[in-house]
Nucleic acid binder design. Sequence first.
DNA 1: ACGATGGCAGAAATCGATTTCACCGTCAAT
DNA 2: ATTGACGGTGAAATCGATTTCTGCCATCGT
Lengths: 350, 350
Amino acid sequence: MECVNPPTFRTMGITRRQGRPDVRKRMPTIYEVAARAGVSPATVSRVFNGQNVSADKSRRVREAAETLGFTPNRVARTLRLQNSEVIALVIPDIENPFFTSLARGVEDVAQAAGYSVVLCNTDEDHEKESRYLDIALSANMAGVILAAAGDHSDLDALIRRGRPIVAVDRGPHGYDIDAVLVDSRAGGRAATEALAAQGFRRIACITGPRDVETATLRAEGWRAAVTGLRLEHDEQHLIYADFRIDGGHKAMRQLVELPTPPDAVFVANNLMGVGALQLLAERGLLPPAVGMAVFGDLPIFAPTPLAVTLVSLPARHLGVTAADLLLKRINGDDQPPRTIVLRNQIVASS
Amino acid sequence: MECVNPPTFRTMGITRRQGRPDVRKRMPTIYEVAARAGVSPATVSRVFNGQNVSADKSRRVREAAETLGFTPNRVARTLRLQNSEVIALVIPDIENPFFTSLARGVEDVAQAAGYSVVLCNTDEDHEKESRYLDIALSANMAGVILAAAGDHSDLDALIRRGRPIVAVDRGPHGYDIDAVLVDSRAGGRAATEALAAQGFRRIACITGPRDVETATLRAEGWRAAVTGLRLEHDEQHLIYADFRIDGGHKAMRQLVELPTPPDAVFVANNLMGVGALQLLAERGLLPPAVGMAVFGDLPIFAPTPLAVTLVSLPARHLGVTAADLLLKRINGDDQPPRTIVLRNQIVASS
DNA sequence: ACGATGGCAGAAATCGATTTCACCGTCAAT
DNA sequence: ATTGACGGTGAAATCGATTTCTGCCATCGT
């Protein structure tokens, strides 16, 4: 199935002109509200921040604000307070359903606590990541939830500034900060052992980039299972790919074209799982012809029962937990940093 | 396949304490840089904004900034400039791959132009949407790309303030602003006609909420095809659901359980398509047993060829185009508003 | 009756960058 | 030689809200 995004377009003329004679009205400020209500700006501020103000003035301020359509300027507020009610969520791939579920979890918790979330997509690129972390800092954001692009993120500036950070999905490499993780090593091992239990002997592994912790840990789990169970072991059966659909596809091709191809494969994330399945479908080798286990849930509707073993991940719950932790920190909790490991669960896709 | 997110977790104790004696260092400011370089703050600002400064002082300023680790404070800058290099992208469902693709397009363009994107998820909720629009305004963001949650978003404040807005995917309801759309009506009609061409006579329609433009337009397209081709027509065959997987699942169940069920169905978005397919799979009625056409690309790797007709959408391209348009507006383009309609394309999933 | 306490409110400082205004040299044009 | 223009620079105003500092007035206790 090929879908081409057509580059052509047509423009529909619209003739009525917008009634905007370039007025660009300024927003009403606290001073204008104060003037209209006959009080000082300080009083207006106090009304909006729940301080003690006489009922009479309070009412007048509210009325004035109402008729002027006043909204407090967040930028000024943030500048003065050195703090804003925004948290940054930095993730490596916004098109990966795992991360969007996670984001959803973060959002729900943050929303409920009156915080907004800004989502920053790093595309597994250190430079983009570092730019977004810079922004979080210089925009006085309240905190950061980070799924790091690699193993050497620079969090010094944020930490010096006392901004809370929670690492999620991927560990905090060298920083002693809160983290919410799944057990990649155990998951990789369990998935591989499940394949072995299904009778497969030559089990390969497709994992992510070498500098991404979850990639190496999952591969380690695979290796532990393979050597622990004394299965056949061939170094060509371990491939470092890129955690993307294409990468999984290419890696799988490489594997099936080996002189002695594996009879099963453990794939270290969901998208590469999709890629690998695509290749197997092309070659008519869909599971159970070749054994497959995937770390993560497949973004798949599988009309035919597919014999794939999954390590199911609590993506949303990961986000919820990370957000909870972060909000606690923001509200002054200063226990020593914790690492919370959520359990994964082996599921046979049926 | 059931995947349960286990609510249990265990905490791994970590003992080493963070070496943060609660110093919370302030960031260095332009004043400190100025003092260290022996110049005025104004000069420091000029150095960082490419104004005329003598080579000597410029060098001294740069050195001072370097050693102090100075980063300009974005909040202060934004307050003064009444403008920031951030654009808001407001979408109704971050878990829908259509919108994440779109977001990806927006991001790529914005990044390249030096803008950051903050992603706001409204969950099809007017209140959340209005809160995010408020934030965009009071945070002095440069512009907004909006896929509206319904047909009565309030953009008055943003427009009064002169902030550019581009509507994407869903029209700008009553505002004369730029829009980037696909032709929902034509797509709905074409999809339905394709089903008719495959020989189906009793074609149902599952669409989205009544107050979402794309939902009603796609249903209109379906109706036009059904009446145009004089197919059998039953009002019970039009169901307004919610654009989500579950909604599609329930709606499809409702349809198959009708006394005279349809022999085909046109589903107005990708997620509901997944839900509908899930139900059909449960009942052993997968296409082509029941005809199906879906508006949008299925977030699916389908291992067995599925006889589903797709109206393929240029999601990423929609985002790219909207971002281009917005950036032009931000840079002062003031042509009359344009509506750009990208073409969709009928694709037979094979 | 007098000092003490506390609630309420305004003037002014503050957050950190940008920019206007004014001033000083220097150099080219008249 | 005088005028004008222009590049470089600093002092101070500015963006809009919060908060400290201060003072006023009323209430309370003794």
